[in-house]
Structures are given as C-alpha cells and as structure tokens.
C-alpha cells in the first residue's frame, strides 16, 4: 500500500514537473522525458510487473493531457516498462552504466515510435532533421538527468523495501 501511494505520488510529481518547469515560457522546446526515467527505473529495479504498471499510469497521464485519443502513449510507456523489466536480472544497486544505456535506447525508441505514429504517417519524411533536432537532444538531456534522478529512485526503492521487510517480519 505504501508502495502504491509512493509511486502514484512520484508519477504525479514527475508529470507536473515535465509539463511545467521544463517548458517554462517555451511552448516548443526539448523536454526531458522524466516519466520515461521513472518507468525505466522501476522496471529495472523491480521487474516486469512494476515497470508495466508504472508505465501504464505514466502513459495514462500523458494521454489524458496531450493526446486527442486515449491509449497510444499508455501502450508505449507500458511496453517500455515491460521490456525494461527483463533487465531486472542484471540489476545491481551500484551500477549506473546499465540504466544509462537502457534509458538512451528507451528514449530513442520511444521518440522514434512517436515520430512514426504522429509524423511519418502524416507525410513528414525528413527523419534526419527530426532525429538531429529532437530525438538526439532529448535522449542526451534525459540521460543526463537519469544519472541524478536514478540514484534518488534507488534510495526510494531501498526505503520501501525495508519497510516491506519490516512488515513481513512482524
């Protein structure tokens, strides 16, 4: 229960930050994908199931807020969370390289799929321009933030785990 509340809180905070602070005064700018970091972190630390659920609700927020129809972002975040869960086997607390590599791949895959759904099918063919101007900067800034935020999530996860364990011991 504590975990659910904590995760819900994190999702809401991340979403509001992503939509306000990083686009402050600027309608059209590169926004780091904080929700993707959240999905990736919990997928990696807790396995497929939690990655899946966190991704689902992150996508739900994005869908409610920007996309005209409900669903596409939900599916996207969810799948990414699920796939990241497979790396749970290789997860180690001190390891920073794995989440970094995973988030870069995640972000590029995520943006590439968004490009295909919303732009390529909309007759915007200049992939190289979109790649250089949007996907690459976003992947960079997201991965930079990952280094900082991931550590925080590790701490949160450790705290939650200890509480869970404490409860079971009782």
């Amino acid at each position: 229960m504590r975990r659910i509340i904590c995760l819900g809180f994190l999702i809401i905070i991340n979403f509001t930050l992503q939509s306000t602070i990083f686009g402050f005064h600027d309608i059209n700018c590169i926004t780091p994908n904080l929700l993707l970091i959240l999905t990736m972190s919990f997928g990696l630390m807790r396995g497929r199931k939690e990655g899946l659920l966190v991704g689902f609700f992150c996508g739900f927020m994005v869908d409610c807020f920007i996309s005209g129809i409900m669903g596409p972002f939900m599916l996207l975040y969810m799948l990414i969370g699920y796939v990241n869960g497979f790396f749970h086997k290789n997860y180690m607390i001190e390891d920073v390289l794995l989440p970094l590599i995973v988030i870069i791949i995640d972000d590029i895959v995520f943006n590439f799929l968004v490009y295909i759904i919303y732009f390529l099918l909309h007759r915007r063919l200049e992939l190289s321009d979109y790649f250089l101007n949007i996907m690459l900067p976003e992947a960079l800034i997201t991965s930079l933030l990952t280094v900082i935020i991931y550590k925080f999530y590790v701490l949160v996860n450790r705290y939650l785990k200890e509480k869970d364990r404490g409860k079971e011991a009782k």
Partner: peptide, 14 residues
C-alpha cells in the same frame, strides 16, 4: 495565463 505545455518534445500544445 499559460500554466502548462505538453509533456513531450513533439507537440505545441499549451
């Protein structure tokens, strides 16, 4: 007042 923009880099919605 504008209080939020879309949360991806792809759209121009506020």
């Amino acid at each position: 007042h504008v209080f939020a923009k879309d949360s991806t880099s792809w759209f121009s919605i506020f």
